[in-house]
Structure formats: C-alpha cells, structure tokens
Computed example of a mutant assay.
Amino acid sequence: MIDSVIAYIAALFAATGFWIPAVVVLVAGLMRGFAGFGSAMLMAPVFAVLFGPTDMIATVVAIELAVSLQLFPSARGDCDWRIVGPMSVVVCLAMPLGAWLLASVDKGLIVKTVSGIIVVFVLIMASGIRYRGERSVGAGMVVGALSGVMMATTSVGGPPVLMYLLAGNDPPARHRANIITYYMATQVPLIGIMFWYGLAGVGSIVRGLVLLPLMLVGAWIGRLLFNPRDERLYRSVALAILFGAGAFGLLRDLIIR
C-alpha cells in the first residue's frame, strides 16, 4: 500500500521533478506569512507551465487553503468584516462563470492571461497608484464579482481585491488580516466548484498535499519575520518576486527554447 502511494506521488512529479515546485512553494509560503499575499500569484504562472492550467488551480487552492487555516486564527480579530464579508459572498457567487471559462478557453491563453495579470498588478502596485474611492459594501461587491471570475479561471483572483483592500490608511495588521480572511472565505467554495465541474482531479489535490509542508514551514517563518514597521520592505521584495514569476509565464516559450 505504502509503495503504491509513493509510486503514485512520484508519477505526479515525473515530468517536472520535485525540486522546482518545492522551491516555489517554500518561497510562496514566506511571502504569504510575512505579507499576507502573493503566494498564489507566485505559484500560478510556474505551476501552469509545469502542470497545466486546470491542475494548477486545484493544486494552488489546496495549498492555499491549508495556509489560510494556519494564519486565520491569529488574523481574524483585526479583520474588517463589514467589507470582507459581503465581498467574499459575491466572489463565491461569481465562481461558476469562471469555471465555465476555464473549461472553454484555450489553455495556452489562460497561462498568458495569468502571467499578464500578475505583471500588470505588480506595475500598478510599484507605481504607487491606489484605489482612492470609497470602500463601501457596494464597491466591494463589484470587486468581488470580478475577483470570483478570475479566481475560478486562473486561481489568481487577488489583484483587484488586493488593490481595493490596500486602499485607505488602515495599519499593516488590518490590511494583512483582511487579505488572509478573504482567501480563507473563498478557497473552500472554489475547490468544491472545481470538483463539481470536473475540473479538479485527485492527482492535483495529492500534489498539493505533498507540497503543503513546505508551504506551512515557509508561512510559519514568514509570520515570525512579520514586523509592521518593515511593511515597505516586505512589499518591495514580494512585488519583485511576483514580477519575475509573471515574466516567466509570459516569456516561457522563449526561455524553454
């Protein structure tokens, strides 16, 4: 039995090896632990190339959910539930449309879309442009609808939500708690929808569980390193890493040749 499980797990990584996704997951965990965001955006373009867009989503979400469970208890007290709650509900309602797109759109286009979204997000965040409108329930629901479609199609639903939640003058701890809570509230429904539409297989979930310990270790270390006074440093490092991951996805055909 154990030999069969080991053989099955080895087959999941046979085409790519284990060390590349392992390193990516460890770094993603560090980013998630100290910044509260960035892990899915780092893993998505690399895993889409390694495993394919559909398997990538299930693998990323399986890993992300476990990390959310780890980080949520210490963050929930700082969350602004008035904004995050209604937005998360709308995200879940919009996910079926994203799942339909995932099943219908060319897979190569999805890889490019994921990578392009990440690069644009990084450039916007690095430029200092921020959402300046009112953070109301209505505005949050509009952002949530867009994020839900993006999340189910690409696993990267964070950019519009991050730009919205990072607006205003809230302290770093509040920003971090809002982001962690948002992911926690939306990842369970996303996995359910993926299985319901037949887009997630057992193999992608197993792959995520095998990589999970590295993510948890990275998130734990990142949480220990978190210091609100160093928010600018954290964000700069996270954005630089994300830009590299997005550029890899966009230029992968040239890199692999």
Rank of each mutant, 00 (worst) to 15 (best):
M215A: 06
P96L: 07
V24E: 02
A139G: 13
L101N: 05
L71D: 11
G108W: 12
I83N: 02
I180L: 08
E231P: 01
I129Y: 13
A75M: 11
V114M: 15
A44L: 10
P172N: 03
S104A: 14
G52F: 12
A58W: 09
D230K: 14
C92R: 01
A126N: 10
G77R: 15
Y197I: 04
R252A: 11
P213K: 03
L109T: 14
L251G: 10
L233E: 01
L225I: 08
R207Q: 14
F47W: 12
R76Q: 12
G36Q: 07
P73A: 05
F13K: 08
R135L: 07
Q70T: 00
G222W: 02
L190A: 02
L254E: 10
A145M: 13
L97R: 09
L97V: 15
L165Y: 00
R135P: 03
L97D: 01
M215E: 00
A44C: 09
G52W: 12
S136P: 03
R223Y: 06
V119I: 13
Y183E: 01
A7V: 06
P171F: 02
S127C: 11
P189S: 12
K112L: 14
M43T: 06
G157V: 05
V137Q: 09
A139K: 12
S74K: 09
P172L: 02
G133Q: 08
S204D: 09
I6L: 15
I191S: 06
F243I: 06
D55G: 08
L109D: 09
P45Y: 11
L93T: 08
F18T: 01
L165T: 01
G246S: 10
A58Q: 10
V67D: 00
M141A: 13
F37R: 10
F51T: 07
V210F: 04
I221P: 02
F37N: 13
G52C: 13
V120G: 06
G52L: 13
L12S: 07
W81F: 14
G116R: 02
V24G: 10
L26E: 02
A75P: 08
T59Q: 11
I20F: 13
V25R: 03
A247I: 11
I179H: 00
V111L: 15
F121M: 08
V25P: 00
Y131P: 01
R232H: 12
E231S: 04
